[in-house]
Design a protein around this nucleic acid. Structure first.
Length: 394
DNA sequence: TCTGGGGTCCTTTTCCTT
DNA sequence: TCTGAAGGAAAAGGACCC
């Protein structure tokens, strides 16, 4: 299989091109006021000096993404905004706008599937493409097709896009990062030793911070060093499944197909509070948030046409430790009150003395709403069961 | 001044049944 | 009735990704 990995870059203010810009989870939306003040101007003409700065931000949140100019200062995705403000106070801070991203995401995927229909969705800004059967796909090692895709996306959306071309998904993903932004990188099977082996193991999609640390403790830093280890040695130190996978990955082997359709496994909603809350002292506030989360999950389920049997909660304490509890019901549900009832039972099984920073509600074991069998117990349900339960002493 | 939100997948533990 | 093995499902946690 020949695969592309394509990812688009999103930045909607052209005048900020080349400047350090951070987009992050600002719950106060710094550019609402900005846009209001300049309601008469096109986005491109808003003066740079009027954009809000990272150093003026107070509150919780992390960076979703940052421009390359901002990354020079050491800031990057998932970093806390307060920490980033120390490294690069002069960076411009923009709020995330997921509705807008989804709109562009849909557009750019539509353009790709028109050209190459075998596409796997990997989130808002990334996809895999199997171009084995695309006419002209093999020309110039895939470069002409990659150029066509880039140009079509740019013409329709103004977005730039990086593309990696390789014999499989694993290598294509790594290749796509060689030449950002706007790059096209082609990696052939014979390029493994020269292009892939010198890279740090962390560049493998599936090796995160924990595994990197473990590998480094064993003196393994590059993919080449990983490839040099015996398969059995890796299995011994990293487990049967992960160890064997590491070995395959280091040798550039990956047989996973491009998957064009998939069903969701779970649907959830969670929220981090602006300040830590206490189950007793902030009970009313917490109860309202809890109910709202259940309602949002139920609405998501209904809108997407699913119901689920496993209801779960997630709590994060003030020390950032998380716990989860879940409970499997006899029948799938998409009903807010039923979800809240079950989630309330889960809440009774956790320590509520400590301060909380996050609460989440999840529904798993999903089935298509049309496939839900009629619930025989519905008739005989005691109405009191639907009385919302929040805390043990409720 | 810490550290989002929405997911997937895997491993380990626990519990229930036979 | 007790004990233990075995196996499956459910529960809990954690790593990872975008």
């Amino acid at each position: 299989m020949d695969a592309f990995y394509a990812s688009v870059e999103l930045l909607r203010y052209p005048q900020l091109q080349g400047l350090p810009v951070v987009i992050g989870g600002a719950r106060r939306r710094p550019d609402d006021a900005l846009l209001q003040r300049h309601a008469d101007l096109p986005l491109a003409e808003i003066p740079v000096a009027d954009f809000p700065l990272l150093k003026d931000y107070t509150g919780r949140g992390v960076i979703t993404t940052a421009t390359y100019a901002a990354r020079q200062f050491g800031v990057g995705s998932a970093m806390g905004l307060m920490k980033a403000a120390k490294l690069c106070p002069q960076a411009i801070l923009l709020p995330v706008d997921f509705d807008e991203y989804r709109k562009y995401s849909r557009q750019f995927k539509e353009i790709i599937t028109e050209i190459a229909p075998v596409m796997e969705d990997r989130g808002v800004d990334e996809v895999y493409i199997d171009f084995t059967e695309v006419p002209g796909g093999q020309r110039d090692g895939g470069r002409s097709l990659a150029r066509l895709i880039q140009k079509s996306i740019f013409d329709a959306t103004g977005l730039t896009c990086s593309i990696g071309v390789a014999p499989n998904k694993l290598i294509a993903k790594m290749a796509s990062e060689f030449n950002k932004p706007k790059g096209i990188s082609i990696v052939m099977p014979g390029d493994l030793q020269t292009l892939i082996w010198p890279l740090p193991c962390r560049k493998i999609n599936g090796v995160g911070p924990k595994s990197e640390e473990k590998l480094q403790a064993q003196g393994i830093h590059t993919i080449g060093e990983l490839a040099a280890r015996e398969r059995d040695w890796l299995i011994e130190h990293f487990g049967r499944s992960y160890g064997a996978w590491l070995h395959e990955a280091a040798w550039g082997r990956d047989e996973r197909p491009v998957v064009t359709e998939s069903e969701p496994v779970s649907i959830s909603r969670e929220t981090t509070f602006e300040r830590d809350l206490h189950a007793v002292r902030d009970r009313a506030e917490l109860g309202a948030i809890f109910t709202a989360l259940c309602e949002r999950v139920a609405a998501d389920l209904q809108r997407k046409g699913y119901a689920g049997r496993t209801i779960g909660i997630k709590l994060r304490y003030d020390d950032f430790k998380s716990v989860t509890r879940d409970q499997t019901l006899p029948h799938p549900t998409a009903d807010a009150a039923t979800i809240r009832q079950a989630a309330g039972q889960c809440l009774k099984r956790v320590d509520l003395q400590r301060r909380l920073r996050l609460l989440g509600v999840r529904v798993g074991s999903l089935v298509k709403a049309g496939d839900v069998p009629p619930d025989p117990s519905k008739q005989e349900t005691d109405p009191h069961e639907h009385t919302a339960l929040l805390f043990p002493d409720d």
